[in-house]
Write a protein that binds this DNA or RNA. Sequence first.
RNA 1: GGGCCCUUAGCUCAAUUGGUUAGAGCCGGCGGCUCAUACCCGCUUGGUUGCAGGUUCGAGUCCUGCAGGGCCUACCA
Length: 665
Amino acid sequence: MTRQILVTSALPYANGHIHLGHLVEYIQTDIFVRFQRLRGHKVAYMCADDTHGTAIMIRAEKEGRQPEQLIAEMSDAHQRDFAAFDISFDHYGSTNSEANRNVAHSIWAKLKERGLVAQRAVPRLFDEQKEMFLADRFVKGMCPKCRAPDQYGDACEACGATYPATELIDPRSIFTDSKPVLKDSQQSFVTLAPLQQTLTAWTQDSGALQEEVANYLKGHFLDKPLQDWDVSRPAPYFGFEIPDQPGNYWYVWFDAPIGYIASTVEWCAKAGGDADDWWRNEDAEVVHFLGKDITYFHTLFWPAMLHAAGYCLPKRVHIHGFLKVNGEKMSKSRGTFVNASRYLDFLEPGWLRYYYASKLGPKIDDLDFQSEEFVGKVNSDLVGRVVNLASRSAKFVQDVGLSETYPEDSGLFRRGAEAGEAIAAAYEACDFREAMRRVMTLADDANEFVERAAPWKLRKDPDKAAELQDCCTVVLNLFHQIMIYLTPVLPELSAKAGALLGSDMDQWSASQEPLSGREVRKFTHMMARVEAAKVEEMFTPEAPEPTSPTIDKEPLADEITIDDFLRVDLRVAEVLEASHVDGADKLLQLTLGLGGDVRRNVFAGIKSVYEPAQLVGKMVLYVANLKPRKMKFGVSEGMVAAAGTDGEIYLMSPDIGAKPGQRLH
RNA sequence: GGGCCCUUAGCUCAAUUGGUUAGAGCCGGCGGCUCAUACCCGCUUGGUUGCAGGUUCGAGUCCUGCAGGGCCUACCA
């Protein structure tokens, strides 16, 4: 039976370039898509750029241009990267399209019709000079948790806490530097509670989700009444204005997944067909691939919207983990945060496709890119075993072609054909590493056959020409069969194998019948080996950029006067005692001496970097007039000054000779 | 603190769902071949299945506890 499958990868955000982590998802989805096409199913692979939201708006503003310009440029870059990795979208759209606006409007209308939209007044920060509500990122102030200054209204970059903008201490508008006032804003909410039963049934019993995901949702959201979802954001906001709410825009996560449908609409307009035939057809299957970070948008809000608007629920939501590099999180400073384009400067796309395939299982586990393993798998599996089959047999028959009838092979080809079933099942289950394992077993068997048949000996005896041709016919057929199985993973290599043997490589069933009596082209190099040095080079950090990334992360603060500065009483202090704090993950307790008998007790979050013993006797910079803060472990009287971001911590010390108690001027 | 997942050879993973002696690939060692992109073939070292109990005729698999790792969530900084 021919299935009709609409497959999506999550929409990449137009705020950054595609990197190796993104590619885990797009390569994985593409393998699934190509597999389904090879099996003869009707497939639509839809994707688009996710373009809305404050981050885009702020960045465009910073770069002094329109957001439309920014997202157009990014869309080009994204599509170029995807094309280089053979990602075979049927259509690649944008959430900032008329199609997306239309679909969003119609879904909104349906939600209202069903009484699922609620309007409520919510107090928000309002800039009276500019006469506008301030989005989270347009207001800065002191973090209510750690009191770090200059933090945005949604989250603190210093301590990672998240909070509503209304909780900021001493908030200021980034536009006018005025103190915003609280004012009621009419916000729109999508009410999810009426859909609780539907969502529970779909998440728990439909089989659409991996078991871990179903458990997660049950334990975190579905065990209590689902809360209303705030989907509106006040202007200015780069996105779509809500039709009946002038001055309010849909939150980016409202219209982002709608892009899946809009992309289908655009594709149908171009290629023929009707988007409803994919989205409102119980016989069609919608399959989403996405990373674990966006699980709940796709497993609660999105199906709720689909259901309420009369679309079918996804048949499958396949969630994957993150990419690590050599056991650690990707990191710019370590050079392991590698963009797609940088990868292409050093290595071949096919290598990565195969390596990811050989690592990807059906679970949500993170995937670890290990340099040595990467080199080993590509070189020994692909070049040494698979391609080697062709390169050690093709040239013996390039003049005579394949035998007229497929020769006796003691059942090798038939066993390979039978293995196709299990390989296909593994692909279907997204257990690509299992599929690769099984294919490589076939390649092992084939190489063993070559060894026993020893074509290089047959070649020396003119009487054994027919035997030689038969032997190579078998080997090339096993190679062909293996390459059919690998076509979803390695389309380019597969095409080369097809050219060698005059085979189209576009049907899974071609693995079931041997080729015979046909020409064999001259063998040409099909795949290069990986040089370990190239991998290492790729992961070596580039020379520091002209503008320091640190200064970007924490831009210079607004101008102050000398009087402002003098309000802070900075003193030289000596660390008299230092100790670990029982039960604290990050804190050390310090006793500071300010000269004479003046001592202060301070808790400092520097445990990750400093040992108590190395601190005693050290001179540090002390913020003396900071209001004492009561903490779980005691009262902290001020703080010690330190610099650093992202886990780096550097205590400030005075030059030699400074004495405890001296003030900074 | 709460929840979920995980731990099998040096590394990456299997083990037909509780059934004989826990298997592959890579790496290492030995031998062979010389068609092939230093490739392939054969042999081989390597395990108290994280630890401790329990259920069972039988446990890698089920249960309990402990240790370690990951993720989510909350709190604390």
